[in-house]
Computed example of a mutant assay.
Amino acid sequence: MNDIVHDPHGGLPRLIEIMRRLRDPKTGCPWDIEQTFATIAPYTIEEAHEVADAIERQAWDELKGELGDLLFQSVFHAQMASEQGLFDIHEVADTMSDKMVARHPHVFGDESRDKSAAQQTKDWEAIKAAERAARAETRTLDGVALGLPALLRALKLQNRAARVGFDWPETAQVLDKLVEEARELEAARDRLGHDEIEDEIGDLLFVMANLARHLGVDPEKALRRTNAKFTRRFNQVEDDLRARGKRPQDSDLAEMDALWDAAKAREKSD
């Protein structure tokens, strides 16, 4: 019988077995053996972001591999849980299947499919609220994951609060708050300590996330888009400097700023 580890078509059972052997305390990989949930969690977050990055770039040839990396993270966590007698990968899959069936009664139950996307979203939130209640998460903000990127968590916290009426009714009020927070920071920056400045910056970013929400914009997506734009334009600045026989450290702000403006103008003309 062939070893499933070397079967190129072994699928998920092959990956599960590979992970089991990597963690074998006698014959496995020393690095894999010493890992814990806490040490692997940052890699899980990183792999999820790499999936999102491939999608953002429409790099479909890379997406399969990135999804595989993310799947491996789930298998890794499940293997560690299995070793501790908590659960295994099959229970993980069953839990997800149970959740999807319960949250889609219009597909897997006897509810009508004749509903709008908005109504389905409302029903989905009602089902999730019932699930949180069953877990004794009775407060409005309970269950919003601490490990989310900060901007995304701010958005989710604000959405939760808005559902119970804690929200500005008009975008203009959010803009006023944004100006207020910026002025507070400007007025106090020379007399505040580092922790206080960090607190004020946090307030400013939180209001920015709220403004994005009121305008129907995903702040994480908006910032990723700006990061990509900055990278693209700065790369062009470096290319233009290279054409002059220079590196950024050989230049100055005035020259690089002029090249930046030129790169920006070329983008807009294209």
Rank of each mutant, 00 (worst) to 15 (best):
F166E: 11
A154V: 02
W168C: 11
V144I: 10
G143I: 00
R160C: 03
A136K: 10
L157I: 03
E170L: 09
V144W: 01
D176R: 15
W168A: 09
K156E: 05
K156W: 02
L151Y: 04
P149F: 03
L175T: 11
Q158Y: 13
D167N: 15
T171M: 11
T140K: 03
E131C: 11
V174N: 01
L157F: 08
A145G: 03
T171C: 10
V144L: 07
A133E: 09
W168T: 10
W168K: 14
D142S: 04
E170I: 04
K156I: 03
L157W: 07
A154R: 06
G165T: 15
R135E: 13
L148P: 08
A150D: 04
V174L: 08
L151W: 01
N159M: 14
T140R: 05
A134E: 11
A136C: 07
A162D: 08
T171A: 13
T140W: 04
L175N: 10
Q158L: 12
T140F: 06
R139L: 00
K156S: 07
F166C: 13
V174G: 02
A161M: 03
Q173K: 13
A161P: 08
T138Y: 15
G147V: 12
A161Q: 10
A172D: 00
L155M: 10
L157M: 06
T138F: 13
P169F: 04
W168L: 14
E137D: 08
G147R: 09
P149E: 02
L141R: 05
R160W: 08
A154F: 08
Q158R: 14
A150Q: 00
A136Q: 09
W168E: 12
T140L: 09
L157A: 02
R135Q: 12
Q173F: 01
T171E: 14
D176A: 15
R132L: 02
A150H: 07
R139M: 05
L146K: 02
L155I: 11
A150P: 06
N159K: 15
G143F: 00
A133H: 05
D167H: 12
E131I: 15
E170S: 13
D176G: 15
G143Q: 01
L155Q: 06
